[in-house]
Nucleic acid binder design. Structure first.
Length: 535
DNA sequence: TATATGCCTG
DNA sequence: CAGGCATATA
């Protein structure tokens, strides 16, 4: 097992709870220093450059007390986890995760049973109480305030699984609680409650859009008004918690994407083309709707470049001049099951943009579409495409070990079957493999060249190592690689260098120690990569 | 034993 | 990058 107990738990925990754990983790780091290497090498140490004695197993054993405490805390948190994310993971790769989902449901069921709700409104009231109880946890990353499972209500497969295969396969064993199976009526009730809650929330969100329309229209002025206070949003790791709060300025961002899902299909192609002269109030994609105008103003040149590259991917243009029709993860859910094809209706070509926007403001239509969008399981792509691969590679600049929750958020336009999940996991495994091979290669090379001080080993944008990595993950070189990645690469390189110079590579599993360090250096993937309504 | 992960290979 | 195998873990 590569991962430390923390990392193992990390995969099992709901994202919001993991955010809390990160907080704990960071607090501990503040007290004890970061990873051994970070402390010794980056923050400076008086030790001899090539022999950092406290680096290695000793440190891990010293930290084991911390880790045990952490694991206990995480266990507690896991017990009180938000139901939304639990169900979200119910279809995940591991049986354990599915059991988590079942437990979450059982918990929910238990709550329901205590009062044996007779009416929908009563259930709703109960849900509110339940939600209030867990929202403090959920709000950490500004996840929707719905404690019920979105996934379970949208994905029939997930629903059936998280409900313990209650109706479809009652005889199937799976360690699910019996009372779940024996009360299909309650499952039905819960489904009703889910639908009701969903409809309510969507309605509220859509209504809020109308109230916010003046805000959207003044986005142009916002752009010219200089950097917004959120300019620190895109910095990495250390400001992660704060950033998460800022990146989701208000509840409206959730609704915005809902509103534009359908109109996106109807936009003329040039509407999607990234253009420097485009009016800021026109969103480039659903993801950027309502946020993008603000964000554009808060970015410096480098992040604009990231953004452009990203939009390019979304729009289906590519560095190799591939046809735009290759677009797949342009964040639009199609109801056909055709993969990798343009999703725009031909009859709207040439339609004025404002007319498209007006259409999107057709409230009853939108509301209907939203609910339909949420509840329809046919809206997902069935396979990963080259654009998904490109996106995954760019994600690697931020996270080397993405959690399943992050993967779900970033690849929300694909149906997360077991196969898709393992393919994505395999991709990142391959990315890491290449990354670590390069690191080892360059570390050995440096050693052979007689480097004497690890501090001489740096990774800059001009370095050969970075070029090799950039060539692999960002071939078109149209994505501004975050500085944090360079830092992580430098730390990795030094880890390899020190380990090799100390002869640790004689141990067959010597790299695992390094992996443990590096996996803690993951940053949050920028919101542009994610869907912003649900986890 | 089932599942997850890493390593090797084409 | 994906497939296959070996190993580790629960």
């Amino acid at each position: 097992m590569l991962y430390s107990p923390l990392i193992t738990l990390k995969w099992l925990l709901p994202c919001s709870c993991r955010a809390f754990c990160r907080l704990i983790h960071r607090t501990e780091n503040t007290l004890s220093g970061s990873s051994p290497m970070e402390y010794n090498l980056i923050r400076g140490s008086a030790r001899a450059p090539l022999s950092p004695p406290s680096y290695g197993r000793q440190d891990w054993s010293l930290n084991s007390g911390h880790q045990a405490k952490r694991a206990r805390v995480e266990n507690i948190i896991k017990g009180i986890t938000c139901t939304d994310v639990m169900s979200d993971q119910s279809e995940e790769t591991g049986g354990m995760q599915r059991e988590e989902g079942a437990e979450g449901l059982a918990l929910h069921q238990k709550h329901m049973e205590t009062r044996e709700p007779e009416s929908l409104s009563e259930s709703h009231q109960h849900l509110r109480g339940f939600r209030a109880k867990f929202n403090p946890l959920c709000e950490d990353e500004r996840f929707p305030r719905w404690s019920i499972s979105f996934e379970a209500s949208t994905d029939e497969e997930a629903l059936s699984k998280s409900c313990g295969e209650s109706e479809s396969s009652p005889g199937k064993k799976g360690g699910k609680p019996d009372h779940v199976n024996s009360k299909p009526g309650r499952v039905k009730l819960m489904a009703d409650v889910l639908k009701y809650e969903l409809t309510q929330a969507v309605s509220r969100s859509v209504d809020s859009i109308f109230k916010s329309m003046p805000l959207i229209q003044t986005a142009a002025e916002t752009e010219n008004s200089g950097p917004a206070p959120q300019s620190a949003v895109r910095t990495e790791n250390k400001s992660r918690c704060g950033a998460a709060a800022i990146q989701f300025p208000d509840v409206q961002t959730e609704a915005m994407s809902l509103v534009v899902q359908k109109p996106e299909l109807e936009r003329p192609p040039n509407f999607l083309l990234p253009s420097s002269s485009a009016a800021p109030l026109i969103p480039n994609s659903p993801v950027f709707f309502s946020r993008e105008p603000e964000r554009a103003s808060e970015r410096n040149n480098s992040t604009d470049r990231e953004c452009h590259a990203f939009r390019c991917l979304q729009d289906g243009c590519s560095e190799g001049g591939e046809p735009r029709s290759d677009t797949c993860w342009n964040l639009v859910k199609v109801k056909s099951k055709v993969n990798s094809r343009p999703l725009r209706s031909p009859h709207t070509h040439g339609m004025p943009v404002d007319q498209v926007i007006l259409e999107s403001l057709h409230l009853p239509h939108v509301k209907l579409e939203c609910v339909d969008f949420f509840l329809n399981t046919d809206v997902f792509q069935e396979c990963l495409t080259t654009n998904h691969l490109k996106k995954a590679k760019l994600m690697f600049f931020y996270t080397r070990y993405p959690s399943s929750v992050v993967l779900r958020m970033c690849f929300h336009d694909v149906q997360f079957t077991r196969c898709i999940t393992s393919q994505l996991i395999k991709w990142f495994s391959n990315f890491r493999e290449f990354y670590y091979i390069q690191m080892e290669k360059f570390a050995r090379s440096a050693l052979l060249q007689g480097a004497v001080d690890v501090r001489d080993l740096t990774v800059g944008r001009e370095s050969e190592l970075f070029r090799a990595l950039n060539m692999h993950y960002n071939k078109a070189n149209d994505f501004q690689v975050p500085d944090r990645f360079l830092e992580v690469a430098e730390i990795t390189l030094r880890e390899f260098y020190v380990a090799i110079s100390m002869g640790k590579d004689r141990d067959p599993s010597w790299k695992k120690t390094i992996y443990k360090v590096i996996c803690k250096l993951d940053s949050d993937v920028p919101p542009e990569f994610k869907r912003h309504h649900f986890g």
